[in-house]
Amino acid sequence: MSNTATQTSTGGLGRLIRRYPFLPALIILVLLLALNGVFEPRSLSFRSMTGLVSTYLALMMLAVAQTYVVFSGDIDLSAGSIVSLVNVSVIALMQKWGGDGFAVIAACLVGALIGLACGLVNGIVVAGLRLQAIVATFATSIFFTGLALTVLPVAGTPAPEAYWTTYGGRFFGIPFVLYAVAAVAILLAILMRMRLTTQMLAVGDDQQAAFQTGLPVTAIRIKGYVFCGLFAALAALCITGDTASGDPLVGGKMTLYSVAAVVLGGSALAGGFGTVTGSLIGALIIGLINALVFFVGTPSEWQNFVQGLAILLALMAGILVSRGARA
């Protein structure tokens, strides 16, 4: 829909949010951290924080994955099934190759390639064949799930010890996941400065205009899906470290959460506006909401409901605040 909001009342806050779209999300994040601290002081300790990150690193990666397609106004409902496929493939390969350090690294590389390939398939189907992203990626998600089931029909094969002890372990006193976070942060900082990110946002903002200025729109959208596939593969490596086993359906539930994380992070689903930083914060918000619902002592059968309600309210609040500021 055309944006009818007038761009006149540009207060200082408005300008700040346009520059940093993830600001409302950051405020929600800080608020949730404070609330978590009030109800369970120990939750703010270094150890609990590391635990939170290692549990939600997979969702953070998948949120980043989803962001790269949302930038150009697309969506990927197969992201979760790519996670599943890479998870079972990596597990199967590590088992086949003996489970030593070399096997682990080789399997991870192959996993990343599988993610890239899945992303390429999605890109060709959606942007190349010009199908509607929601339905087309749902169709490919069925296909990827089928592939995952071929690789590993039932959940259960364990990961080699070398893998999950590394993921959960410490090096020089610092947990491995923090190194992973740092590495990804550097990678994302580089990507953020690449011309491709701007091009994706331009395509998402106005596809026709982007085309008329000479941008290769189809190629840019395909690249978005390829990035999505790659980060979905990274998400799979994280989840493999966290659960230490293979499950052909492990990612299914994560797809919609990744979309929610992107929206929570202040990116517009219609494309053209957003940041990966916001999506990372969005994923953490989901994690902190889940933790908070537990810490305030919600009866176990009510936890899902309260979580769902809190996420819905956070989604609505985020959209209203950022629009109020942008208007």
Binding site: I142, F143, L147
Partner: peptide, 11 residues
């Protein structure tokens, strides 16, 4: 099998 069925369905 179920896996092949899903792949054919998606494609």
């Amino acid at each position: 099998d179920e896996a092949g069925r899903q792949m054919v369905f998606g494609a």
